[in-house]
């Protein structure tokens, strides 16, 4: 396991959001973190990268992350792509990339995945379309050497064509770096994920093979809700 989460607890403004979440992330391939809205997926991701205060044990490649601040976790090789992209609107595309660069970078990979970013280098990130912003958010992280990627809802609110593009990029990335992926689009999950971890009401409700989960309509409905 590249990441071992053991009994993770998070309290936010007086509410007990995560209640003893435990799971592992395989050292290769894509692990999907699933669950209904409000199950605690984003809270888990933020806690892993140190943006939410949490208690419990998180081992990253064997090293305990306790007491490590966010930037230290990222520098240790934990690449994080947040929900809602969070590109810096007032900075250009190039500046966004330059800001995020850590040590030796591979911009060729990024421009190869998303040629659009090269073309729009001098454009302010705030004036990009949603899809382009997502590409930038991914590119910012993918240019670095990461040992694990945390990617939170990369296809949220994107047009179907862009969803495919992003999924393709993640598939290529997933071949070399392990990924923990929060994703609502089950077609994307089916295409990418090996293992699935399902959260419900702040704890892990189910862990297993993603194909098995999505193949079982009844199980999918009971865990993830109707109409998916």
């Amino acid at each position: 396991m590249i990441l071992d989460v053991h009994e993770l607890d998070v309290h936010l403004s007086g509410l007990h959001i995560l209640q003893g979440v435990s799971f592992g992330v395989a050292p290769s391939g894509v692990t999907a973190l699933l669950g209904r809205n409000g199950a605690g997926k984003t809270t888990t991701m933020r806690a892993l990268v140190g943006l939410n205060p949490g208690t419990g044990r998180v081992l990253f490649d064997g090293a305990d992350l306790a007491g490590k601040r966010t930037h230290e976790r990222v520098q240790a090789g934990l690449g994080y792509v947040p929900e809602d992209r969070c590109v810096f609107a007032g900075l250009t595309v190039t500046e966004n990339l330059r800001l995020a660069a850590r040590g030796e970078t591979d911009l060729d990979l990024v421009y190869n995945l998303f040629p659009e970013l090269l073309k729009r280098g001098q454009q302010q990130a705030g004036s990009l379309s949603g899809g382009q912003q997502q590409m930038l958010a991914l590119g910012r992280v993918l240019q670095n050497r990461n040992r694990l990627l945390l990617v939170d809802e990369p296809t949220k609110g994107l047009a179907p064509k862009v969803v495919t593009e992003v999924a393709e990029a993640l598939e290529r990335v997933g071949a070399t770096v392990p990924v923990l992926l929060v994703e609502q689009n089950l077609a994307v999950v089916r295409r990418l994920a090996g293992t699935a971890v399902v959260l419900a009401a702040g704890s892990v409700a189910w862990t297993g093979d993603a194909t098995h989960l999505l193949g079982d309509a009844e199980l999918t409905t009971s865990l993830l809700g109707v109409g998916r």
Binding site: L51, R69, V74, Q75, C86, F88, G90, L91, L99
Partner: peptide, 20 residues
Amino acid sequence: LIVRAGVENREMVTALGIDV
């Protein structure tokens, strides 16, 4: 660059591995 980005969204700057 860090200051300009931090004024926009400080949390995200740390999430890119920068000690803000």
